[in-house]
Design a protein around this nucleic acid. Structure first.
Length: 300
DNA sequence: AACTTTTTCAACCGCGCAGGA
DNA sequence: ATCCTGCGCGGTTGAAAAAGT
């Protein structure tokens, strides 16, 4: 560990956005040594960045197998939602089922949706400006609901940073157990935090690009998002030419799940989903969909 | 067009585990 | 057996971009 209190030899740690030059240095390091020895990058004076920062940069931005600029597909959304319900906020774990996605991606995706959902549920949904919507339409949404499918907020995996049901008994969302459970390592038993859950939904995703380089590595526990460095990332990618991960073909296997915990009827109640539109995404839904959350009899 | 709000995303932080000295 | 170091993870923050008014 670096000398506490900031030893003299090493340049001050730089923080903030990475420059192209820094990226280049980092890439060169990975090319030569593989994605490891992060700390040596600073100790050798290659970059004034902490090892931690270097690793993060590599994992989240520079890794060659990342999908960049692609929004989460409907399938990916379902995977995240399903897995989050099963194992909680184990983003790194969930990310292993989503080739080309990082734990940060998954985390951001989830928190964005949680925020939006929270806003929609908590604050009264702002009505369309009076007059902008021809009168009755908006105000009548709630009344048009099929009468009482009582909305249960528990159905919605809402408390994003807390836990799914099986965690909620814990004293804190950040306690030792959950923390320890999250410290899985390659080779760990799958889903250590998933008490009583079935084994991981074996390769939820099958993907042309997934598992490249490791033909038999479709191990349920490690769907080989990023196989261990084999010294040949770059050569392999160069040969591959087009990265199949950039615009993957549809991901398979995920059983159609509920929409944020709402069953189809609710969704239908919002008159948004066609019964066959199982692939619809949160984003696709107009705000009116959630108007009925304003119902005064919502449970506290 | 200007302003405000919301969303997205990159990056940092603290914690805890694993492994080596 | 203990300490130290490196690494990985989950949570959080803040700036930029996009969308809405």
């Amino acid at each position: 560990m670096k000398p506490r209190g900031g030893g003299g030899e090493q340049p001050a740690v730089r923080k903030g956005p990475w420059t192209a030059e820094e990226d280049e240095v980092l890439l060169r390091h990975v090319r030569e040594h593989g994605p490891r020895d992060w700390s040596s990058i600073r100790s050798k004076g290659l970059l004034p960045r902490t090892g931690k920062s270097c690793r993060l940069r590599w994992v989240n931005k520079l890794r060659p197998d990342l999908k960049t600029g692609c929004k989460f597909s409907a399938e990916e959304e379902r995977v995240v939602i399903d897995l989050q319900a099963q194992i909680g906020n184990k983003w790194a774990r969930i990310a292993t089922y989503l080739p080309g996605r990082t734990d940060n991606d998954v985390k951001n995706f989830w928190s964005t949706r949680q925020k939006r959902l929270a806003r929609l549920l908590r604050a009264p949904v702002p009505r369309r400006r009076p007059g902008k919507q021809s009168g009755s339409a908006s105000s009548s949404h709630a009344h048009e609901l099929p009468t009482q499918k009582n909305l249960c907020l528990d159905m919605i995996p809402f408390q994003g940073t807390t836990t799914p049901a099986h965690h909620t008994g814990e004293s804190s969302s950040h306690d030792h157990d959950s923390r320890a459970a999250s410290q899985h390592r390659p080779g760990d038993a799958p889903f250590p935090g998933a008490h009583g859950l079935p084994p991981p939904p074996v390769p939820l995703l099958t993907h042309a690009g997934a598992g490249r380089g490791s033909p038999s590595s479709a191990a349920p526990t490690a769907p080989a998002l990023l196989p261990p460095y084999d010294g040949d990332y770059y050569a392999r990618d160069a040969v591959a030419g087009v990265d199949p991960l950039v615009c993957p073909e549809p991901l398979a296997v995920v059983p159609p799940g509920t929409f944020f915990g709402l069953d189809d009827d609710y969704v239908h109640a919002g008159r948004v989903l066609h019964p066959e539109a199982s692939g619809v995404r949160f984003d696709d839904l107009p705000p009116e969909t959630f108007d009925f959350f304003e119902l005064p009899h919502l449970p506290p």
